[in-house]
Amino acid sequence: MIDRITLDPAICHGKPCIRGLRYPVENVLEWLAGGMSIEDILLDYEDLEREDILAALSYAARQTHIKRLEPLAA
Rank of each mutant, 00 (worst) to 15 (best):
M1Q: 13
M1R: 09
I2F: 00
D3H: 15
D3Y: 15
D3V: 12
D3M: 11
D3T: 15
R4F: 10
R4L: 05
I5E: 03
I5D: 05
I5K: 01
I5H: 04
T6N: 04
T6Q: 11
L7V: 09
L7P: 05
D8R: 03
P9A: 14
P9Q: 15
P9T: 14
A10H: 06
I11P: 00
I11V: 11
I11D: 08
I11E: 01
I11H: 00
H13N: 07
H13K: 07
G14R: 04
K15D: 13
K15H: 10
K15E: 14
K15R: 11
P16V: 05
P16F: 05
P16A: 09
C17K: 04
C17V: 03
I18P: 05
I18A: 11
R19S: 10
R19Y: 06
G20C: 12
G20W: 01
L21Q: 15
L21W: 04
L21C: 00
R22S: 15
Y23C: 10
P24A: 07
P24M: 02
P24F: 05
V25M: 00
E26D: 10
E26V: 07
E26R: 04
N27T: 08
V28D: 01
V28F: 06
V28E: 01
L29E: 01
E30C: 12
E30L: 14
E30S: 13
E30G: 13
W31F: 15
L32V: 03
L32N: 04
L32R: 09
A33L: 06
A33H: 13
G35I: 07
M36D: 12
S37I: 06
I38N: 10
I38C: 08
E39D: 12
D40T: 03
D40R: 07
I41E: 07
I41F: 11
L42E: 05
L42F: 09
L43Q: 08
L43C: 02
L43S: 08
D44W: 11
D44L: 15
D44Y: 14
Y45L: 06
Y45G: 00
Y45H: 03
D47Q: 08
D47R: 10
L48R: 08
L48E: 01
L48I: 06
L48Q: 00
L48V: 00
E49K: 15
E49C: 13
E49A: 12
E51K: 15
E51I: 09
D52P: 08
D52R: 06
D52C: 11
I53Q: 02
I53Y: 10
L54D: 12
L54F: 14
L54Q: 10
A55Q: 01
A55H: 07
A55C: 04
A55D: 07
A56H: 05
A56G: 01
A56P: 05
L57N: 02
S58E: 15
S58K: 10
A60Q: 14
A60K: 14
A60I: 13
A60G: 07
A60N: 14
A61I: 02
A61T: 00
R62N: 11
Q63I: 12
Q63N: 07
T64F: 11
H65I: 13
H65A: 15
H65W: 13
I66F: 15
K67M: 09
K67G: 02
K67Y: 08
K67L: 04
K67P: 12
R68D: 04
R68F: 09
L69K: 13
L69Q: 07
L69S: 09
E70S: 14
P71H: 04
L72M: 12
A73V: 12
A73M: 03
A74F: 08
